[in-house]
C-alpha cells in the first residue's frame, strides 16, 4: 500500500552530528506518520540537526509539508535545525509555492546543507 520509506544516516562532522533522512516515494497524509515517527525518534535520541535528503521523494502533499512545520519550531528551540536538500523539481515547486524557502534552508545538494548547519539560520527575506 505504502510506497514511502525513511532511511536513516548519521553524518558526523567535527563540530556537530547531523541526522540525515533519505525520503523515498510519496509523502502524503497516510505516510506522514512515518516521517513523524522518524523525527520523534531523532528528538528522543537527542539529535536536533535534521537534514532531509529528497532525492527519492517523488511527491509531497500538504500533510507531508505539515510535518516539517510541526517540528521546525521545536527543533530550533533546542538549538538544532531542519534543512532540506536535493529535492526533485516538482517537489521543490510545492515547497517553493508555499514559501518554505523563506522559513528554512532548501539547498540543491546535501553537502551544501551540511555546511549551512555551521551557521545559525537567518531568514532570507
Amino acid at each position: 500500500m505504502s510506497n514511502f520509506s525513511v532511511g536513516f544516516r548519521t553524518h558526523v562532522a567535527p563540530e556537530r552530528e547531523v541526522r540525515v533522512f533519505d525520503l523515498t516515494g510519496e509523502l502524503d497524509a497516510h505516510t506522514a506518520a512515518e516521517l513523524e515517527a522518524a523525527f520523534q525518534k531523532a528528538l528522543a535520541d537527542g539529535s536536533y540537526n535534521l537534514l532531509i535528503n529528497g532525492t527519492g521523494l517523488v511527491y509531497i502533499s500538504s500533510a507531508g509539508l505539515g510535518v516539517f512545520m510541526a517540528y521546525l519550531e521545536d527543533v530550533r528551540e533546542r538549538g538544532g535545525d531542519i534543512k532540506i536538500a536535493a529535492l526533485q523539481p516538482n517537489v521543490f515547486t510545492v515547497f517553493d509555492l508555499l514559501g518554505f524557502p523563506f522559513l528554512l534552508h532548501i539547498t540543491e545538494t546535501e553537502d551544501e546543507a551540511l555546511e549551512r548547519f555551521a551557521l545559525p539560520y537567518e531568514p532570507e527575506a
Binding site: S62, L65, G66, V67, M69, A70, E73, L97, L98
Partner: peptide, 8 residues
C-alpha cells in the same frame, strides 16, 4: 490552526 496545519 493546529501546529503543522496551514492554508494556502
Amino acid at each position: 490552526l493546529a501546529p503543522g496545519t496551514f492554508v494556502s
